[in-house]
Design a protein around this nucleic acid. Sequence first.
DNA 1: AACTCGGGGCA
DNA 2: TGCCCAGAGTT
Length: 216
Amino acid sequence: MNQDQRRAIFERLRAANPSPTTELHYRSPFELLIAVILSAQATDKGVNKATERLFARANTPAAILALGEEGLKAHIRTIGLFNSKAKHILATCRHLVEQHGGEVPSERAALEALPGVGRKTANVLLNTAFGEPTIAVDTHIFRVANRTGLAPGKTPLAVEHRLLRAVPSAFLQQAHHWLILHGRYVCKARAPDCPRCIICDLCEYTQKTSDVQSGP
DNA sequence: AACTCGGGGCA
DNA sequence: TGCCCAGAGTT
């Protein structure tokens, strides 16, 4: 797949997703960090509902620590995996206070050293909070990139590097959003809706028959 | 590489 | 009602 085809894919996805959808609510890098940790395997809507109450009560590492484990859990109990997330958040808050003066670090290595923060979460922080040209590869983006031929047969890290070269840095934020929406509602894991896909003709996966089978 | 965590979304 | 996740850590 050449550069023109990649550009055509992103242009069509842009045209198909003009309206903004749900995004994480945050007012500081720290709030974003906590929201992203909570968002694993959960929806932005559910996370926002929980963080709205949580951040009104505590929006700094010291304040979260002051809540204690049970106090924190009381706020995030409606979010999946809340038990392990609460432990990771408290450990991360301790780490921030002890190692970084209560501030969220802006370097990748320091971010990924935080409990509960992996490559994907670190990339969201680097991109959204610190303006670094990164793209956070989640399961949707990974699947779409592999199927469409944007990055066939690549590992998540290779997908990240491929997309980083294919998308102008000014559009990374939006491209990330378009790819996730496409993966969630059209290029679905189990039953991809190929007949409704607007980049079907550019896709190497392409199942144009009416009886769509399950994914690769 | 496989397993675990867990409430929500969706068929 | 049952299945599958807008991940990361541990084994």
